[in-house]
């Protein structure tokens, strides 16, 4: 099973993502901010990161930038409530492979993962 890291400051959202993903993925970590996301990524090198944007200490776009500059092959999908075009462009610049806006349904998450991994 592909390995996935979930980064979201909301316990509620981590639970929701875990429920959607655990059937087909092995969850290697659940973290609450961008700093932890980078640390756990370096330790675990998961196949996929589901990354929130608005998080304390360090936001998801900065964390994505760092993960991608260390490992250009990393697959990072932004999973956020932010639906602003400028933010999406920032996410692309940081190297994000996909973008899901909350609230989401399971099929759109699965689809976004297939698109990102396929690309």
């Amino acid at each position: 099973m592909p390995e996935v890291l979930i980064a979201d400051d909301s316990e509620f959202m981590r639970n929701l993502l875990r429920e959607i993903l655990e059937e087909d993925h092995q969850i290697v970590g659940e973290v609450e901010n961008g700093v932890e996301a980078v640390e756990v990524y370096k330790e675990e090198s998961p196949d996929l990161v589901m990354m929130d944007i608005v998080m304390p200490i360090r936001d998801g776009i900065e964390a994505t930038d760092e993960i991608k500059s260390g490992d250009p092959d990393a697959t990072v999908i932004m999973c956020t409530s932010v639906g602003q075009e400028e933010k999406m462009k920032e996410a692309v610049k940081a190297g994000a492979d996909g973008y899901i806006t909350k609230p989401f349904q399971k099929p759109s998450v699965i689809e976004a993962i297939e698109d990102a991994v396929g690309a």
Binding site: M13, S81, G83, Q84, E86
Partner: peptide
């Protein structure tokens, strides 16, 4: 908390998109 997060984004994103800013 998560509800507030998602509703906040829903509320302010429109401003950012129309104004082409973040």
């Amino acid at each position: 908390e998560e509800m507030g997060n998602i509703m906040t984004s829903g509320f302010v994103d429109g401003w950012a998109n129309v104004l082409q800013t973040s």
